[in-house]
Design a binder for these strands. Structure first.
Lengths: 202, 202
DNA sequence: CCTACCGATCGGTAGG
DNA sequence: CCTACCGATCGGTAGG
């Protein structure tokens, strides 16, 4: 493809707009996480990126699209970070331990958008709402399968309730750690795995 | 106290209004759980109890008061259901197992208001917001103490990270079980406790 | 990217 | 408990 000065200018403009779009999505994720989708206005989002609300529509189609983009992108990236771990060839218990760490690591560096994915995607409508429901199921099944294999091959407890154990693992993964300064995310993952692995009783 | 016909009439009116108020709070809890505090309008709430939105203000002061009432009442009743179990004189592991069951039993018969307590109380402002933050801390500490005693007296694993274990217990308690027909709440509590108690590995 | 505007809806009130 | 209304703000658009 030829990049003459006009195309180059067009590409630059596209790049600028894509950057702006990214800023807007990041600002929206922060505000949606704090005030909820309906509690954060286009005015609020504009203010956070130094634009008047009308100018936002140069970069995004409407408010719903912002939510779709945040939730969809976050779900896709979380999946990309965790699914390779769970689909690898390894001991199920090792895969689960590492998947927990991968999920928590992703969550700790995407706190706002992860919160939106968890608690605000219910405000999606139509197709996007269906997509995210299906995504959630697929993501659960990914974990479920690893637990299932683990029980069948004796790597995990034989008498384990597989669905319940999967729920508990996902709960540990989705638990909003206050990712504080005193301990890095990896350590949080290790502590949670230690409780889940060995249980509460001696 | 004398109940002449006038006082009786006044009492009846009070009773009627209190009933209406209860209906309104229940309707609001359902709508806040489904659409969020800002996503459910006074119009929606009125419709659900067969009133026009203006008429709601006979029974409640404003929209914020509805949220305060739902969250405050639910927190108080949850505490009343669970704290006696955790404060009793018994083996810590038994108390935790029973507290998990008590919490889940309460949650299963208060699904809407529990959801509002968990996810919409962030929209409270001023004093009520402070109250609920403090309540949450107290409720956590209640569980934390039982875990702490359990570890100290050897009833629970000695090498347990107490804060982390408490988080996992509360996660198991707050996990939104789809309380379906195939299994009662008690069974869900038993399965969760079994995973937490014995751990994932053989 | 801003100015200026749109119709719709918001929470809430007065008067009966 | 309803009718009729209030000012404010909502998401979104046209025109420059």
């Amino acid at each position: 493809m030829q990049y003459d000065r006009f195309e180059s200018a067009a590409t630059q403009e596209q790049g600028q707009s894509a950057l702006r779009r990214g800023e807007i999505l990041a600002a929206a994720a922060t505000l949606f996480a704090e005030h909820g989708f309906h509690g954060a206005s286009m005015r609020d989002i504009g203010e956070r990126v130094g634009l008047l609300k009308g100018s936002l529509y140069v970069h995004i189609a409407n408010k719903d699209e912002i939510l779709v983009e945040i939730v969809g992108d976050t779900a896709r990236r979380l999946n990309a970070a965790v699914s390779p771990v769970l689909l690898a060839t390894a001991r199920p218990s090792d895969k689960l331990r590492m998947a927990l760490k991968a999920h928590l690591l992703f969550a700790s560096s995407n706190q706002n958008s992860m919160f939106v994915l968890q608690h605000e995607s219910k405000h999606l409508t139509g197709q996007p709402h269906m997509w995210i429901c299906e995504w959630r199921l697929r993501y659960q099944q990914l974990w479920w399968s690893a637990v299932d294999v683990g029980v069948r091959c004796g790597d995990l407890r034989q008498d384990l309730d597989i669905a319940c154990a999967t729920d508990m693992l996902l709960a540990a993964a989705n638990l909003n750690a206050t990712f504080d300064m005193t301990s890095d995310t990896g350590a949080v993952a290790d502590r949670r795995w230690e409780v889940l692995r060995g249980g509460l009783l001696p």
